[in-house]
Design a protein around this nucleic acid. Structure first.
Lengths: 242, 242
DNA sequence: AGAATAGTGTCTCTGAGACATTATCGC
DNA sequence: GCGATAATGTCTCAGAGACACTATTCT
């Protein structure tokens, strides 16, 4: 099968970023309008080719993150979310894309970057429902990224990363509700979060809303892995396989 | 930052396979002795370069699987497990590897393939403990693959794939014990597995061991996602992040 | 006082863990 | 009968879900 003169086919590598945030109590994903062919003018995930042969994947992801959105790279956790390498996915040739997932607190409207004609937040439901068409196979990448975020919310303290440095329990609950897309009972949520040791740490008390009793403030604790995990209700009737 | 004449750097793509099975009640991984440089003579995961520019990743994984081990591809579930693309991981240049995880029932000693001087099963503990040196960053790939298998055992009916088409509950328990590396209570395991609807289906009754009461036989049910999940004990004291 | 939001308490049910007991085989 | 393995039952405790109540602010 392998010839003496055979050489492996080169491929081009891109990193694509699924940057999720919370705006107006909805889970939103950062999309850019492509400024170049192919799919020029269409919406797509921020990302791009590896810069040079020595660039690390995670480095490239961070570079694209700061290039295409004016975000503070330090505060963002970045994690690999999948590889997409189907032969026909990019008309420019054999392009394999490594997807990275980033979770961010409320962010400002991003400034347009170099490769992107425009960059803006879009609700993920619009993407998942298909109302919003994305270039390449980026819709699938968003789907996988969102599902990964949902699972991570169960088992890790990731939700605090969606909030600012100081937050109320209600705000934290809103994060879960937005990402999971379901309502939660405030009292059970309160109890669960409070008794999960090291999840959140008290940080004084202050007013938050215009009316009502002032909420206590918290900051993220040291615990990364939540055990027992936060449970997503009615998980009995789902099906999610590769 | 982007020059007019700039072109993205090409990379070489490999697929690496983490093939896990159960032999002698231990979790074992298929390793090959490399027949070519670099790392010639060292143990490594089966795998290799993309064959041609149009080959799908999963196709390449299946091809390597049948090339390097004489396994029935049909019965194996294959799933992406990670990407490994650190700049210095392969002396031949910029090589990015996509790892695939395969789970298999008891398998025979494999026959040596084309690229591999020798192929054989090795207990994963030997790899994880570092007693067994692996080429490239393959030890890390095995670590990630095993952890993924452990998690999948919790939330999916994957464990039945380790068994043959017909099995006893005790055999199924041995799968969990081998992969998780901990002993389980037979009575609680029995109860849990029985009441998880659609996990296993009765398939008659027959003798299994030389002595004692004959065990009932089962086959895999239709359910893929287990809810509530099988819980891995003492998960309270672990830490596992990217 | 009343509206609005934050925080606490209680009851019930499910499921996990620990462990004793019974059932069915070969000898 | 005995030894060995399979299967079932029981008790207890932790945690999730449902829901009523109290607390603290503002107007």
């Amino acid at each position: 099968m392998t010839d003496d003169r055979w050489v492996p086919p080169p491929v081009l590598l891109t990193v694509d970023l699924v940057i999720l945030t919370l705006r107006e109590s909805r889970l939103q994903v950062l999309l850019v309008e492509r400024g170049v062919e192919p799919y020029k003018g269409d919406l797509a995930l921020p990302g791009g080719f590896l810069q040079h042969a020595e660039e690390d994947l995670i480095t490239a992801a961070h570079r694209e993150l700061s290039e295409e959105a004016d975000l503070d790279v330090e505060t963002l956790r970045l994690e690999q979310s999948g590889v997409y390498g189907a032969p026909g996915r990019d008309p420019r040739g054999r392009v394999v894309s490594v997807a990275y997932l980033a979770i961010a607190p409320r962010l400002p409207e991003p400034t347009a970057g170099t490769d992107a004609a425009d960059a803006r937040w879009q609700p993920v439901d619009h993407v998942l429902s298909g109302d919003l068409e994305l270039a390449f196979d980026h819709r699938r990448i968003v789907e996988d990224g969102v599902e990964r975020a949902r699972v991570k919310l169960e088992h890790s303290a990731l939700a605090t990363a969606f909030c600012g440095p100081i937050f109320t329990i209600t705000e934290l609950q809103e994060v879960y509700e937005a990402v999971w897309g379901i309502p939660l009972d405030p009292r059970n949520f309160y109890r669960k979060v409070q008794k999960t040791d090291g999840f959140i740490i008290p940080a004084g008390s202050a007013r938050k809303s215009a009316t009502g009793r002032p909420a206590r403030l918290f900051k993220a604790g040291r615990r990364e892995v939540l055990y027992p995990p936060m449970v997503r209700p009615s998980e009995s009737s789902n099906a999610k396989e590769q």
